[in-house]
């Protein structure tokens, strides 16, 4: 159980990245959703023990860890948003180095564990290549491999699918879902699809404030019967946006495919009721046009 109480972070110059964020996260996958600059990475870095908060408390399994990040590290697997490796080492050398630092496995098992981890992230074919020759996606996968090494009790992954192709993203989703069965996985992302696919519960951050803590089903249920879908021309879209809440507008074969949120009244001509999605809920939350569940215990 990870408990966060009134976490605040103020950077030099008065930039407030987090404003009194409180969360309770039990086992399983928990998503942290928010636009760029909402404070997700700051929260992740504080939880990983890399950044001291200005105020607030963090408890891990009932143990106060705010001032003692060294209590978190033995139980932590961390995939930061930005990271690198020693470029002159090969993938397997780099992973072996990290496995040793994490105290994973015995001396005889190290090679087998490293090889298996690399296979898990589909990097076995490049194990003996130097890390500096890896593509961005390959580095990300090596990062994932080191994060899951040692079966950590708490896995923090910050924007993990950035740089992964669709195939690898799918593979990673499955891996994370498997890992979340037996531990707490905290996933930070600005991609709604990541949360919709993986997280039974999630929180929404914006400008350092916790806006909501809910489940995808609850978020969608809140919009039941209020979403409509239709197609309009470009000029009509601008007029429509003035009279209704447009959540999404995609160009499909030259026309705008639009999703509307209407709490009351009849939809415009040509629009039909549509099943709400998590993306609708998130975008409406960001626009301030609707509210998910209030922030609270998850």
């Amino acid at each position: 159980m990870l408990t966060i109480e009134g976490l605040t972070k103020v950077y030099p110059g008065g930039v407030t990245a987090l404003q009194g964020v409180s969360l309770e996260i039990s086992g399983g996958m928990f998503g942290l959703l928010g636009p760029n600059g909402s404070g997700k990475t700051t929260l992740m870095r504080i939880l990983a023990g890399l950044l001291e908060p200005t105020d607030g408390r963090i408890m891990l399994d009932g143990e106060e860890v705010t001032g003692h990040p060294e209590r978190v590290w033995p139980r932590l697997g961390y995939l930061p948003q930005y990271f690198g490796f020693y470029p002159e080492l090969t993938g397997e050398e780099m992973l072996a180095h990290l496995l040793r630092l994490k105290g994973v496995g015995g001396p005889g098992m190290l090679r087998a564990l490293g090889a298996e981890l690399l296979e898990r992230v589909n990097l076995g074919f490049a194990a003996r290549r130097k890390v500096k020759t890896y593509s961005g996606g390959m580095r990300q996968r090596l990062g994932i491999a080191q994060a899951i090494a040692g079966n950590p009790a708490l896995l923090i992954v910050d924007e993990p699918t950035a740089g992964l192709d669709p195939e690898e993203r799918l593979r990673f989703y499955r891996l994370l879902a498997e890992l979340a069965e037996s531990r707490t996985v905290l996933l930070s992302t600005h991609i709604v699809e990541d949360v919709a696919t993986l997280c039974p519960r999630f929180a929404v951050l914006r400008f350092g404030h916790l806006l909501a803590t809910t489940t995808p089903a609850e978020a969608r249920a809140g919009l039941e019967g209020t979403m409509y879908e239709g197609t309009v021309g470009r000029d009509a879209l601008e007029a429509l946006a003035r009279t209704a809440t447009v959540t999404q507008a995609h160009l499909v074969e030259g026309v705008n495919r639009v999703r509307l949120h209407l709490r009351d009244g009849a939809p415009p001509a040509g629009f039909v009721p549509a099943a709400p999605t998590l993306e609708d809920a998130y975008l409406l939350q960001m626009q301030g046009a609707a509210h998910l569940l209030p922030a609270g215990a998850a």
Partner: peptide
């Protein structure tokens, strides 16, 4: 080398255990 195109997962993870390394062992690494 080309990565395999399959998205089929390999068998479940080995039973990894982790114990924080001691001062000397970690310093050696």
């Amino acid at each position: 080398p080309v990565p395999p195109a399959s998205v089929v997962l390999p068998p479940p993870l080995l039973r990894m255990t982790a114990r924080a390394p001691g001062m000397i062992a970690a310093a050696r690494v």
